[in-house]
Write a protein that binds this DNA or RNA. Structure first.
Lengths: 234, 234
DNA sequence: GATCGATTTCATCATCCGATGAAAAAGGGC
DNA sequence: GCCCTTTTTCATCGGATGATGAAATCGATC
C-alpha cells in the first residue's frame, strides 16, 4: 500500500574496474556489520543507522550500494548461501562416490551436516552470525519460508533422494518429516544461542561444536532409522 | 543511552473488583491481537498501533493496561507459559506414577511432548500463534535465552532427571545435548512454518500434528538411545 | 442523582526511521 | 591539469513510532 516502486537510481555498473577495490572493501564492511546486527536482533530490530554506525559509514552510502534495507538483508543472506550450497554439494558428492554400494544413513547425514560444522568452526565470527541469522529466518513464518526454500531446497532434495537410495523401502513422507526434525536440531545447534550453557549449569557449551559433531550425526541417524522402521500410515 | 527510566504511572491496583470484567475482556482482546502479530512478525516487527487496530482499541489503552511495548510482550509470553508448565508437569507425573519400574525413554519423551501437541490441536489459533512465538524467542540470541530459561528450565530439568532414572548409566552431558536436539525439532514442528509443505511438494503438511506425533516420539527416543549408547568422552 | 474511582478517548510530543537529491570529493585517462 | 565517472558526504523530507497528559465517559455506591 505504502510501498511504491523505487528506481534503484545509481547502481554501480559492475563492468570496468572498481577503481581501487576500496569501494568493494567498504561494501563488505557494510555487509559484515549488517550481518552481525541482523543475526542478533532480526530484520526489524536493526536500523540502517545502526548498521552505518557499526560500519563507520554514512547511511546514504548503504542506500547507494544496496538500495533499500530489505535489499541489504537479502544481500547479507545471499553472500554466504552459495558457498554453503557448494560445500554441501561437494561433500555429498564425495561421500556418494567414495562409498559405492556401501552408504549408510549416518554417513549421508554426516555428509550433509559436517560441512556446516566445519565452516562454522573455521570460518570466523561472520559465519557464526550467519548461521544464527539463518536459524532465525527458518523460524519466521511471515517470509522465512520462501527465503529458505529458494536457497536451500535443492540440497535438501539431494539429501532425501540419497537417503531413498540407502533405504528404498522408506516412504518419502517419513524422510521429509525426519528431515524437518533434523533441521530443527541442526539449526538450533549452529545458532549457538547459549541456552544449553545455563540449562546444563556449565556442563555443556553451545560453542563446543565438537560436542555437537560427536552426537548429532548419531542422534539424527537413529531417528531416521526409527521413523523408517515404524513407517506410520497416514 | 537514550533509554531513561520511566515512571509506570497509572497501573491498575488489581485489588477491588474490576467493575464488570469488561476491562478484563478488553485486556484479553489486546493480548490475543498482540499474540498473533508478535508470532507472525516478531517483537520489533509489530507496532503498538497495529496491535491497537487489530484489537479495535485506542493505543493509549494498551499503555494504560500494560505500560510499555516490552511489558505487553512479556504479558503475552507469560499468559500461557504457566498453563504449559502445569500441563507438562501433570503429564510427567502421571507417566511416572503409572509406570513404576517400567518407564522407557520413549515413554518419558512422549509424556514431555504430548501435552504440547494436544494443546496445539485442541486449543485453537491462539495456542498455535503462541507456539510460533516461543519458537521464535527460542532462536533469538539477544534476549531469548533468559526469557526461555526463566519459564521453561524447571520442567526441562524434570525431563532430564527422569531420563537419568531410566538410563542411570547415561552422562548428563549427553542428556542435555540430546534435549537440545529434541527441543529444536519440537519447536520447529509446533511453529508450523509451512516449510515442509512446499519442500515435500504437498506430501506433508506442517499443520498435521498427528503426523508429527506418529514420528517425533520415536525419532527423539531413538536419538537419545543412540547418543547414550555411544557416550562420547569430551 | 451526586460522588468518586476506574476506564477510555483525544490530541499531541519528541524522537527516530527509511529514503532521497544535491553537492562535494576522489581518482583515473588523456 | 582538465574531463568524466564513481564514490562519499551533507542536509533534509515526509511519515511512523512509543509514549504521555488531560479530558471525557462509564459504573457502582451511597
Amino acid at each position: 500500500m505504502t510501498t511504491q516502486v523505487r528506481a534503484p537510481r545509481g547502481r554501480p555498473a559492475g563492468r570496468g574496474r572498481p577503481s581501487k577495490a576500496a569501494g568493494r572493501d567498504l561494501k563488505e564492511t557494510i555487509l559484515d556489520a549488517a550481518e552481525g546486527l541482523f543475526a542478533r536482533h532480526g530484520f526489524h530490530g536493526v536500523t540502517i543507522r545502526q548498521v552505518a554506525a557499526e560500519a563507520g559509514v554514512d547511511t546514504a552510502l548503504i542506500h547507494y550500494y544496496f538500495g533499500s534495507k530489505r535489499e541489504l538483508f537479502d544481500a547479507v543472506f545471499l553472500r554466504r548461501a552459495e558457498i554453503l550450497n557448494t560445500a554441501r554439494s561437494v561433500s555429498m558428492d564425495a561421500y556418494v562416490k567414495s562409498h559405492p554400494g556401501r552408504m549408510t544413513v549416518e554417513g549421508v547425514i554426516e555428509a550433509f551436516i559436517e560441512p556446516l560444522l566445519r565452516i562454522s568452526q573455521d570460518g570466523g565470527q561472520g559465519w557464526k552470525s550467519y548461521f544464527a541469522l539463518v536459524a532465525q529466518v527458518n523460524n519466521t513464518p511471515a517470509w522465512g519460508g520462501e527465503t529458505m526454500a529458494r536457497f536451500f531446497d535443492p540440497v535438501v532434495h539431494r539429501l532425501v533422494e540419497t537417503l531413498k537410495i540407502v533405504r528404498p523401502e522408506a516412504e518419502y513422507r517419513d524422510l521429509y518429516w525426519s528431515y524437518q526434525f533434523l533441521t530443527g536440531s541442526m539449526m538450533l545447534a549452529l545458532s549457538e544461542t547459549g541456552r544449553i550453557d545455563s540449562l546444563s549449569e556449565g556442563q555443556c557449551h553451545s560453542s563446543d561444536l565438537n560436542a555437537v559433531r560427536a552426537r548429532l550425526f548419531a542422534y539424527c541417524a537413529a531417528g531416521f532409522e526409527a521413523v523408517i522402521a515404524r513407517a506410520p500410515k497416514d
